[in-house]
Design a protein around this nucleic acid. Structure first.
Length: 592
RNA sequence: GCCCCCGUAGCUCAGUGGAUAGAGCAGCGGUUUCCUAAACCGUUGGUCGCAGGUCCGAUUCCUGCCGGGGGCGCCA
């Protein structure tokens, strides 16, 4: 729709320029939807932008363009406004054409027709297997997952990966903390003993692996603990179960220990050394990242002989590149931002174009509790887990899955680079007036209309019109405005994918829901309905008037198009799209 | 000290080199014989942190400052 307007305006601009003998370069028209409806369906500032090239006043150019566009049947009217804006109003048929396109593609509208894009490795969550996932991980998880769905939608092939840090001091510390707890010894320095789950782990370890605990077999016990943190010691527990509860799945689980075991670290460092990127200083081996603009060189081999986390991370990312991906995307917490430059430098040094490596930084989630801010961090003991919040919300609503929908909505709704504050108490209570229900309700209402059309009007969805003439009865200005909004969906999807911005999908859907609900109520006020009235449905009398049949059919096609785009949007967000929603019993309580 | 993010309505946050800066929640006033009122309509509420600069035009881009958060390990 916008495309068509754009080509027509560009053509008009060229012809006006030719007529006036203008030879200077012409600007590409930018077409936008005006905020004010009285400014038409589309507006362009191209006359203002062309002022220099034409050596004429914007308003004069606009008037000339208006003349060039006037004969075109696509436009109902063209106005010059303000300092030289060109406001165009489209003929209804242009909307019917656009709707027809949406209907042809249905839920796939806006999606790439084939996976012709890049092969992308998307690494996200990758939380240390030393504790349950907390809300900060949850944000990364949701952002990563939705970005994955966005990339899929525009035709990339995405592999989702979780890197398990099962080799470092942290898992060792966890094992020591568990042993300490089990044997009544004091928690090691920087240990996890303050966390409640360590008690459970200690009980579990004593039960299943008593010899490892008593014999202080740290390495062996660490492996068992990592496994149990990931897979849980009972169904429904563990990091993987938490992710599943959020509707998040990874294709590949990579182990840091495995990177160490088969010599990949040494090989990666060998490659760097050969190319002169490593230098020994003060007994340690440094990667010369300052050559690539980093603040300082970074240690890869410590003076005690061990290698750093950075070293294994280089090897791990080299491995990902070796697996043939066109692009690596890592989703990290914002507290890792200082790490980007050095890893990017390492990737450059390994001979890979640094553009192939991309980091999405997800800003902090600050947790408030009853208005009191407190930091979260594994070592502080008191943090909110995803499991807790999911359970609270599911319980409050009595609808399993509502916690997942709410959390996904909440974390996807905001720009990833902005901090967000969550008051835990509010997040838990918000279950009933969370905006996610507004979205789901909108979808359910659309489904409900289509259901009644089938059950009570004897209309088969397959028989509804999808052609321009069949949709001709669609004339209400609100209906046409919503068609225009539907027409924007592919662009919104593409933008959100390109910028890795889930929140744009939330914004679009919220807008779509709002304009439809508004229309729906307005129609009532105008004493009109989409479906025939109840008595007419019952006796079938609405079928006697061909104009009514045409209008009802066209509107139902339109409803189906909205529902399809709506469902596609919810699917990108991973939020369920219920076909009907029951009322909650809670309402009665509120009245009392 | 250096680097990154943020600063927009009472609160939580969108948004844009262009016309009178938006939404949700909160507040106030309305709407229900009707396809789902979990809704809708109206209304109150703004020095777009401050100051310069670029521009025909800046809330948007640039610089400086102020405020909040995060990062600056031979930790992971």
């Amino acid at each position: 729709m916008k495309q068509e307007v754009e080509t027509r305006i560009a053509r008009a601009l060229r012809s006006v320029a030719r007529a006036r003998g203008v030879t200077a370069a012409l600007p590409t028209p930018t077409i936008e939807r005006p905020k004010k409806p009285e400014h038409g369906d589309f507006a362009t500032n191209v006359a203002l932008a062309s002022s220099k090239a034409f050596g004429a006043k914007p308003q004069e150019i606009a008037a000339a363009l208006r003349g060039a566009l006037e004969g075109d049947p696509t436009f109902a009217r063209v106005d010059v406004a303000g300092p030289g804006f060109l406001n165009v109003k489209l003929a209804p048929r242009a909307f019917h054409t656009a709707l027809s396109t949406v209907l042809a593609d249905g839920r796939a509208f806006g999606r790439a027709r084939a996976a012709i894009g890049e092969r992308i490795n998307l690494e996200f969550v990758s939380a240390n297997p030393t504790g349950p996932l907390h809300v900060g991980h949850g944000r990364s998880a949701v952002v990563g997952d939705v970005v994955g769905r966005l990339l899929d939608a525009v035709g990339h092939r995405v592999i989702r990966e979780y890197y398990v840090n099962d080799a470092g001091n942290q898992v060792r510390l966890l094992a020591e903390s568990v042993i300490a707890k089990a044997t009544g010894a004091p928690d090691p320095e920087g240990g996890y003993g303050a966390n409640a789950y360590v008690v459970d782990l200690a009980v579990w370890a004593m039960d299943r692996y008593r010899p490892l605990v008593e014999g202080r077999k740290i390495d062996e016990l660490s492996r068992r603990l990592v496994a149990v943190m990931l897979a849980g010691y009972a169904p429904g527990t563990g990091i993987q179960a938490t992710l599943r509860a959020l509707g998040i799945f990874h294709d590949v689980w990579s182990s840091e220990a495995a990177v160490h075991l088969d010599g990949r670290v040494e090989r990666a460092l060998e490659t760097l050394k050969k190319d002169g990127w490593l230098e020994e200083k003060e007994g340690a081996l440094f990667f010369l990242s300052t050559k690539l603009g980093d603040d300082k060189d970074r240690v890869v081999f410590k003076s005690d002989g061990g290698h750093t986390y950075f070293a294994s991370d280089i090897a791990y990312h080299k491995d990902k590149l070796d697996r043939g991906f066109d692009r690596l995307i890592d989703v990290w917490g914002a507290d890792h931002h200082g790490y980007i430059h050095r890893l990017q430098s390492a990737i450059t040094a390994l001979g890979m174009p640094k553009e192939r490596f991309e980091v999405i930084l997800v800003q902090m989630v600050s947790i408030l509790k009853n208005g009191e801010p407190y930091r979260m961090g594994k070592r502080l003991g008191n943090f909110i887990t995803i499991d807790e919040i999911l359970e609270e919300i599911d319980e409050a609503t009595g609808r399993p899955g509502s916690g997942r929908d709410a959390i996904r909505y909440y974390f996807a709704a905001r720009r990833t680079d902005a901090h967000i504050d969550i008051d835990v108490e509010i997040a838990k209570k918000q279950s009933l007036d969370n905006p996610v229900y507004y979205l789901q309700y909108g979808h359910a209402r659309l489904c409900s209309i289509l259901r009644l059309a089938q059950d009570e009007c004897g209309l088969s969805l397959a028989d509804l019109p999808t052609d321009v003439d069949g949709l001709g009865a669609l004339q209400h200005p609100d209906e046409l405005a919503i068609v225009q909004l539907l027409g924007e969906w592919p662009e919104v999807l593409a933008d959100a994918a390109k910028g890795r911005e889930p929140h744009k999908i939330v914004g679009y859907l919220g807008n779509l829901a709002q304009v439809f609900q508004s229309y729906y109520t307005r129609l009532k006020r105008e004493n009109d309905t989409i479906l025939p009235r109840k008595n007419e449905r019952a006796d079938g009398s609405w079928r006697n008037d061909p104009a009514t049949v045409a209008k009802v059919s066209a509107r139902l096609s339109w409803v189906r198009a909205i529902r399809d785009v709506y469902a596609a949007g919810l699917d990108i967000l991973g939020i369920s799209a219920p076909e009907r929603m029951e009322r909650f019993a809670v309402e009665a309580e509120e009245e009392g």
